[in-house]
Nucleic acid binder design. Structure first.
Lengths: 128, 128
DNA sequence: CTGAATCCCCCACGATACTG
DNA sequence: CAGTATCGTGGGGGATTCAG
């Protein structure tokens, strides 16, 4: 069971919400998980689809996800090195959560507008 | 439609996930939303159930949630002041998301363990 | 190719005090 | 009761360099 890194959470009934958020929000973890749902990926493959994430951050986030038991890190001892990241069974339990996030984002933010038809929605200037 | 406050999000298909996270994660927003799903609440009522949140932060988070159209702020012009926070219809669209977070937290973190029977799970030391 | 180590800036956030 | 204003700080995270 993953541990909570940050603040002391009060234990009012809603704290489970924050607990989950703490685990999946650590900056880019959401997207990383999302992509790993589809397929195992190498480090550089993740870098490519996440151009705004620095190498350092990507490494750190992957390490935390690994610590929490969400992903598996498979190291192939060869030159050049090859490391593959994949979801664990436990990581897959997050699927409904991540998909709920994805679905809402698609419906209600301009970031889901890619798949839509009306360019009139693109009024947010978040593409540069 | 709410706007994204922080980083430039790449637009790989998973960005909708991060976009949603940005909006609901802003520190304690998740819990705030969770509690407002149940009932309209006054400022101090929220403070009481969120003892770890400073007054300043609570105010800021509520303001952001209001800006994003998730909650409504009803001011009663009277002495002493009375302000009630409630979810908007738009805010209620987040319900499946928040509930997915809640459910996962209940199942997989010690913060959901309050309602469970087996004390063997309480090995995390997050209660004090 | 994957990753660790170092430097350093910035601002999110806490603490505290004041107000209508 | 429900906020604002101000100040100080910790560490999150970017840029860069080194390494196997």
């Amino acid at each position: 069971m993953p541990r909570i890194r940050h603040k002391s959470l009060d234990c009012s009934p809603g704290c489970a919400v924050e607990a989950t958020l703490e685990l999946i929000d650590g900056k880019w973890k959401g997207v990383i998980l999302y992509h790993l749902f589809h397929s195992t990926m190498r480090f550089n493959a993740l870098r490519k689809i996440l151009p705004n994430v620095t190498q350092r951050m990507l490494t750190m986030q992957l390490r935390e996800l690994e610590e929490d038991g969400f992903i598996h890190r498979e190291i192939y001892p060869q030159i050049p090195p090859k490391v593959e990241y994949s979801l664990t069974d436990f990581g897959r339990t997050l699927e409904p959560v991540v998909m709920a996030l994805k679905r809402w984002g698609d419906e209600h933010t301009t970031f889901g507008a890619e798949k839509k038809k009306s360019p009139a929605l693109e009024t947010q200037g978040q593409h540069g």
